[in-house]
């Protein structure tokens, strides 16, 4: 039984670098990630083509507006900041992980080396989730430095006292690792459980487990983006008084 989409290799590109030869594998993770990315790109481009300001909007425009409004409200309530600089990153992470988790239910067959392989979602591979977590942790650094300057950012690691510097670094690294492993473990265990129960009791139990997987696959992107917001806003320090007032006036305007 395959437990990771990394093991399903479609094509190998041989590379020789520094007198050593190795191969870059085009595996299920890469194919799935790019498939989802292309699907999302063309889907949202198709939707946004006929957006309008009137009340006579299409259903898909309504859907996108609900999604964006939800993300904005979450960002403003959790980060206590204006949502504009973060909505691209957080929203992309949320939508990508959500769609990737939901594709776990699609039974897409692939023929690899004359044997039948089934589609697995890219989030059930540790490489994808580790990549997403690297994106989040590096954006913590970028946003923090943009806000506070380089020295202001690194001051965070020497608080409350300079002896705690190694522990602060460790907690930064472990929060990134746990972000990756949480998503990977949840999605992988859901798929694996469905596979094992399919061997034991086909027809009924795998369906129930897949419904549970759908629930976990809906909650996990929310968790991932909420934790990304928490880490980024912790890296940026406390919001200043003027920022808070700006946010308050923005929220009042909306009402």
């Amino acid at each position: 039984m395959k437990i990771s989409p990394d093991e399903i290799v479609f094509y190998q590109i041989p590379v020789s670098l520094f007198n050593r030869t190795f191969s870059i594998d085009i595996n299920m993770t890469i194919v799935g990630t790019w498939g989802i990315m292309i699907f999302l790109f063309f889907f949202f481009r198709h939707i946004t083509k006929d957006f309008n300001d009137s009340l006579q909007m299409t259903r898909l425009q309504n859907m996108v507006e609900v999604l964006v409004k939800f993300l904005r409200e979450q960002i403003e309530s959790i980060m206590k900041r204006k949502a504009d600089p973060f909505i691209c990153l957080i929203g992309s992470l949320f939508i990508f992980i959500l769609v990737a988790n939901w594709t776990a239910l699609l039974p897409i067959p692939f023929i690899v080396d004359k044997s039948l392989e089934w589609y697995m979602p890219p989030t059930s591979s540790i490489s994808t989730t580790a990549g997403l977590s690297i994106v989040v942790m590096s954006s913590v650094i970028v946003y923090g430095m943009k806000k506070q300057g380089i020295f202001g950012y690194f001051k965070r690691f020497f608080e409350p006292i300079f002896i705690l510097f190694p522990l602060n670094i460790l907690s930064e690294i472990s929060s990134g690792v746990s972000l990756a492993i949480r998503l990977y473990g949840n999605i992988m265990s859901g798929g694996l459980l469905a596979g094992i129960l399919f061997v034991l009791a086909p027809f009924f139990l795998p369906g129930l487990i897949n419904i549970y997987g759908l629930l976990a696959g809906t909650i996990q992107p929310y968790i991932f983006s909420v934790l990304a917001m928490v880490y980024i806003s912790a890296g940026m320090g406390d919001p200043s008084e003027s920022e808070m007032e700006e946010l308050m006036s923005l929220q009042l305007e909306r009402i």
Partner: peptide, 27 residues
Amino acid sequence: RSTLFVSMAMLESTAIYALLVAMILIF
């Protein structure tokens, strides 16, 4: 509810770590 979901995920991750160790040991 939203706080519960987040804390649930944090709590669950310890169980996921145990599961991961078990998976590595078996597979």
